[in-house]
């Protein structure tokens, strides 16, 4: 497959070559909230940019803020005005593609899904990572919840320096002692 190395458009798409979407790719899909939006309220980010037959995000949302509709291969559409950032969509997404981000002064906060053991504990110092798994900055775990309805997908909330809000997607896996 010939690739034109001069095409910035192709260079910026990394989902099918590196495995994770680039920020440019996500912005083009309209799923990256602005800093103003994240400062105003917690913003759901649905990093689901490929048409696969899937809609649990839609059925999980009590506010009707996420719409997939028919066919179920449609990409989810988020209505920020209806969203209360309750976070039920985070463990509902089988693709672990939903996070919630917000900004408060110098700190960014992220709520993300987590399915590894050992899990993090409240107050723990962790390393936040970007979409390629590269360490970005230190972070602090604010809470970990895993009620029965999550069906074993924990939701972790962590704080980290605000300047990294766009890159950070998760935290580094811990290893067994």
């Amino acid at each position: 497959m010939p690739v034109n190395p001069d095409s910035p458009d192709l260079d910026e798409r990394t989902l099918k070559t590196l495995g994770a979407p680039s920020l440019a790719e996500l912005k083009a899909a309209g799923v990256v909230p602005s800093r103003e939006e994240m400062a105003a309220r917690p913003c759901v980010c649905v990093e689901c940019i490929e048409e696969i037959p899937c809609n649990p995000c839609e059925t999980s949302c009590p506010q009707g803020a996420l719409t997939v509709g028919q066919p179920i291969t449609n990409l989810p559409v988020l209505d920020r005005d209806k969203c209360t950032a309750c976070g039920l969509c985070i463990p509902a997404c089988p693709g672990l593609a939903v996070v919630i981000k917000s900004l408060e002064g110098n700190l960014a906060k992220i709520r993300f899904p987590w399915e590894y053991l050992p899990g993090p504990a409240k107050g723990e110092e962790v390393e936040m990572v970007d979409r390629l798994g590269n360490p970005v900055c230190p972070g602090t775990v604010v809470s970990v919840i895993n009620p029965a309805r999550n069906n074993r997908t924990a939701v972790v909330t962590a704080e980290f320096p605000a300047e990294h809000v766009d890159e950070v997607i998760s935290m580094r896996r811990k290893t067994w002692p």
């Binding site: 990572v129 979409r131 798994g133």
Partner: peptide, 13 residues
């Protein structure tokens, strides 16, 4: 699926 590769990639693979 991109969502599958993305979750493995963000784990550093």
């Amino acid at each position: 699926y991109g969502v599958h590769t993305a979750k493995v990639r963000r784990a550093g693979v």
